[in-house]
Structure formats: C-alpha cells, structure tokens
C-alpha cells in the first residue's frame, strides 16, 4: 500500500486508490491491531470516552498536517538528518495542539497530562512519515495520515467505550445504565477502570478482528 504513485497527475481527488488510502487503515491495515504502532497512548487514556475522543481528534490533526508538511519538504530534506526534521515538525504541531487543549478544554488537558506530549513519540506518526509521506505527494499523504489516525482513533474509541460503560456505567460522563438495574443488584466492574484492563480489552479486540479476517492470523 505504500508504493509510490508517480503518475497520478490527472487522478481525481477521490479516486479508488485514494479512497483505499483512507479506508484500509480502518480495517485490514489498522495501525494498532495489525501494524502494532502507537500502542502507548491507547492504554493510559481510555478510561473515559471523552479523553479518548479528544486524543483521537488531536492525533488526526497532528498526523494529517505532519504528513502534508513532510510530503511538501520531501525533496529538500537530506536523508541523514530526516529523523530530527520529522521530530521537529511533529513536536511543533504537538505544541500547538497542547496549547489549544489547555486553552479550550483545560480539564481534559489535565487528565491527559503527559500523554499529549507523548504524541510526538507515537510511533504511528513517525512510521507513516517514514513509510509514506517521504515518497508521496501531499494529497495522498494527507489521506494516508488521516486514514491511519482514524484507524488509531477508532480503536481508542472502542476501548474507551467499553471501559467507561462497564467500569463506571456512564458514557461521555452521562449515566447510561438505568437505575433499576442497580436496584436489581448490578454492580459496576471497578476492574475495568484499572490500566491493565486496557491491554486485555485491546487483546480481545485483536482476537475478534483476526477471527473475522483469517488472513491476519500470525502463523509463526
């Protein structure tokens, strides 16, 4: 999927190939469950759906823009120092996101603590810059970035959804489990709030994903 497409000068903006760039990472090329990139932040910030959502949006923004910038600069960056250049571009974008979060959603920004900064070292961003943006045009790179970030975000939201629903009985902070269930003896599973449960939830998502798509099964 990362073959350089050189002769697409007259290609339409949403040609089938470009649509694939956007849709593949959501399913069979998902950055988390298949490419194993960017795991770190999935685990720590998915206790609530709200923080997951903010994180997902931040990553989509950083990744789309970083891919475009690197793709525009791809012919001028000397290969030897490309990692530092990439890190600088990503770090500047993350600073912007961090300042915006602090200004508009301060409480969420407190909860995310160091994990906004850790978007910089989220390997999924570096990975896509290296694998795709360095040898593709800006528009496909943008789609690739948004697609991969959305694939990442979708897993984030899934994990956040289950952990908040089962752990606190709420979604986005609103109670969804009706009161009569609690009266009947239903208890929130406090275990789901603990960080290790995020790992196990992701493990189960991978299980279901690979069960439905047998091509992904690890043979070794």
């Amino acid at each position: 999927m990362s073959e350089p497409n050189k002769n697409n000068k007259k290609e339409a903006m949403f040609s089938p190939k470009n649509q694939k760039l956007l849709s593949n990472p959501l399913g069979k090329d998902n950055p988390i469950t298949v490419q194993v990139l960017g795991i770190c932040s999935v685990l720590a910030i998915t206790v609530q759906l709200r923080t997951s959502l903010v994180m997902a949006i931040s990553v989509v923004a950083v990744m789309g823009l970083a891919n475009v910038i690197i793709s525009i600069l791809r012919k001028t960056i000397p290969p030897r120092i490309r990692i530092i250049v990439q890190l600088t571009v990503i770090a500047s974008l993350v600073i912007l996101v961090d300042q915006l979060l602090k200004a508009y959603v301060y409480d969420v920004s407190r909860q995310l603590s160091v994990f906004v900064g850790l978007i910089i070292t989220n390997c999924i961003i570096m990975g896509r810059l290296e694998a795709f943006a360095l040898n593709n045009k800006p528009w496909p790179s943008f789609l690739d970035g948004v697609g991969n970030a959305a694939g990442y975000g979708s897993v984030l939201l899934m994990v956040g959804f289950f952990r908040e629903l089962l752990g606190s009985g709420t979604l986005m902070g609103y109670q969804v489990i009706p009161n009569f269930l609690y009266d009947l003896g239903y208890e929130n599973n406090g275990f789901m709030i603990l960080p290790p449960m995020a790992l196990i939830t992701v493990g189960i998502i991978i299980w279901v994903h690979r069960y439905r798509d047998r091509n992904l099964v690890d043979i070794s």
Binding site: V36, G203, R210, L216, V217
Partner: peptide, 10 residues
C-alpha cells in the same frame, strides 16, 4: 487468532 500479538497483550 490470538497467537502472537493478541496473547502478548493479554
């Protein structure tokens, strides 16, 4: 389907 990555997570 759990082999490799999945079981490592768990």
């Amino acid at each position: 389907p759990l082999r490799g990555l999945g079981i490592t997570f768990i």
